[in-house]
Computed example of a mutant assay.
Amino acid sequence: MTSHPQLDNRFALARFRDGDTVRLGLVAGASIRPLTADDLGAEDLNAFLATGDWDRIAALADSDGPWRPLDEVELTAPVEPRQVLQTGANYREHVIELVASGLSANPDTNLEEARDLAARMMDERRENGAPYFFIGLPACVVGDDVPLVLPAVSDTHDWELELAVVIGRETFRVSRDEALDHVAGYTIVNDISTREFTFRKDMKEIGSDWYRSKNSPGFLPTGPFLVPAPLVDGSSVDVRLELNGEVKQDANTSDLLFDIPALISAASQTHPLLPGDLLLTGSPAGNGQHWKRFLKGGDVMTGSIAGLGTQVVRCVAEETA
């Protein structure tokens, strides 16, 4: 069982294992209590998120009830999305590093010149470009109670700790100004990728193969908490990942090229976003590809986002016949 530190916010939702079932719970401090449909005023989690009635939950957080120590339960993924949207190349400094490394390979361009050019390119993209989305499988969403099994077909499995938006009421072709009205809350997602499968080798013209790269079982460790939107300023939260106690990612969402309202608005132009869906905001710098060090059995990733708690993912190598 993963031991989670006390929630560093007033209250949140979580899902926990109760025998062979999973129940929804309310977390406050170091305690948790189960939530019923009557408590929610809705038939299930996604139906509640569509209403956004956080005042109802806040009242329960301050009340007596069947509270129990958080460490006595096993938490799992706090959401049940029907759709998962992932955002690529969305941290300005991260993308500048990637672009500059390619530009500086030109003997006529030094690293400083390459960084300046890359920075201008990113600022132009932010002003006149659009976010880059791809889709993941909801079946890959798991809690950190599930070990991350590293498929034996590759040794290039990588981490990407990200702030994830949890959609509230249905969102279709919403304006940027109205986008935040459709956010129910936020959670943590580690968007695992198998790097060698990201680009097709048999037909490079096709480009990215996100299905094979990002959709192995358990490749979206999520949670442990779903924190209400009114309690989180998603525009400026610290994102930090440690691998075996060593800091690998350390950034702030203020560095996003396209901020959360821009992402929601752009994503909703193509297809409705549904209550409970996840919209990942992108990975900051510091992935394994940068460090030239990929995941292996026995590794422990500790990911934290300010106000959203801490996620601990343990890696195991896949057993082969």
Results as ranks from 00 to 15, higher is better:
Pro217Tyr: 06
Pro217Gly: 10
Ala164Thr: 06
Ala152Leu: 07
Val149His: 05
Lys201Trp: 07
Ser154His: 14
Phe199Asp: 05
Val174Asp: 00
Ile167Ser: 04
Leu150Phe: 10
Thr187Glu: 04
Thr171Arg: 00
Glu162Arg: 08
Phe219Ser: 10
Asp158Gly: 09
Leu148Ala: 12
Phe172Asn: 07
Glu205Met: 13
Ser213Asn: 03
Phe199Trp: 11
Met203Trp: 10
Ala229Ser: 15
Asp145Ile: 09
Ser193Arg: 00
Ser208Gly: 04
Pro230Ala: 10
Leu226Gly: 06
Gly143Asn: 09
Glu178Gln: 13
Gly223Leu: 06
Arg200Tyr: 13
Trp210Leu: 11
Val227Tyr: 01
Thr171Trp: 00
Ala179Cys: 10
Gly218Cys: 08
Asn190Thr: 04
Arg169Pro: 03
Ile192Lys: 02
Ala152Ile: 06
Ile167Gly: 03
Leu231Gln: 11
Gly207Leu: 08
Val146Gly: 02
Thr222Cys: 15
Trp159Ser: 08
Ser216Pro: 05
Asp145Gly: 14
Ile192Val: 15
Val165Met: 05
Asp177Cys: 00
Ala164Met: 01
Asp144Ile: 04
Val141Ala: 05
Asp144Met: 09
Thr198Phe: 03
Ala179Leu: 04
Asp158Gln: 06
Pro147Asn: 12
Asn190Trp: 02
Tyr186Lys: 03
Leu163Glu: 02
Ser154Leu: 07
Asp209Cys: 13
Leu148Pro: 09
Asp145Asn: 15
Asn190Asp: 15
Phe197His: 05
Ser216Phe: 13
Ala164His: 03
Leu148Thr: 08
Thr187His: 03
His157Val: 14
His157Tyr: 12
Ser208Phe: 11
Tyr211Ala: 13
Ser154Asp: 12
Leu226Ile: 06
Val166Asp: 00
Pro151Gly: 12
Gly207His: 06
Leu148Lys: 12
Ala164Trp: 00
Pro230Cys: 09
Asp144Cys: 15
Val146Met: 11
Thr156Gly: 02
Leu180Cys: 10
Phe199Lys: 09
Asp181Phe: 00
Thr194Cys: 12
Asp177Trp: 01
Ser193Asp: 01
Lys204Pro: 15
Ala179Trp: 00
Val166Phe: 07
